[in-house]
Amino acid sequence: MPTKLRTTTHYLFTEQLRLLGWTYVYLIAIFLILPFIFDLISGNLKDFSLTGSIATLGLGAVFGLFLMITMSLTYDHFKLFIQNGISRKTFWRARILSMLAMGLVGTIITAIYDYAIVVPLRFDSIAKFFNNGNFYTLYIHYFGNNLAINIFASLIMLLLAYILLGTTGLAFGSIFSLLSKTTRRLVLILGPILGIFFLFFIASNSNGHSSDSFIWLLDLFKFLVGDFNNAAAGHLNPLMPMLTMLVGSSIMAGIAYFFNQKLKVKS
């Protein structure tokens, strides 16, 4: 690996690790320590469950959100790197590499959290954990009942989901860095509103009463998540969402590269 790529990747990776540490510190402070203090002050300490609070912290979901947000932070890094003679291409490559490394870190953290903390505290067994609302519930029977294979497959899916979130953050961050402050604010305000409106529009048109025009969208979604021929829950094909996430990540990485190459210093 070229020296500059290694240095840039190392810089981004260590910075993200530091930020992740702080994120978890805040998470623990807000969802563990503050409720404890409130219950202590209000005299309801018997209502406070330390194990319950720890088991519902949702470190995995928080990590996904963290990765997407930190990967979208583009311009500040671009400024620093171009000041230090780092090209846009190296910057993009380093972001991809650090994102992959962080995805792996997140998968390991989530695995440790799920199997060493959540399962013993909330479920009697890993099988019950998989059968009670975990994302892998939909696919649990596809590879048979071998627990090791299912754990491995679920972790691969999780890693791919993190990578998709990371590359999505990269793509949006690169696009946003090219916009002016006013346009950025407009997009941030109007984007979610239009998105919600669009979802309602689809929902109202796909309930079979008014029109079938969006049924194809629902069918496409089912296909992408591995639901062929209305398979029963637990029997969906996990390879399909894996492929979907892999292709989606590649597209997002491509979009990020395209806009990354257009980054320039704002005066």
Partner: peptide, 14 residues
């Protein structure tokens, strides 16, 4: 790029 350095009026440091 690594062989040149521009100290600019615009601040690029965090």
């Amino acid at each position: 790029l690594g062989r040149l350095y521009l100290m600019s009026e615009v601040n690029l440091y965090n």
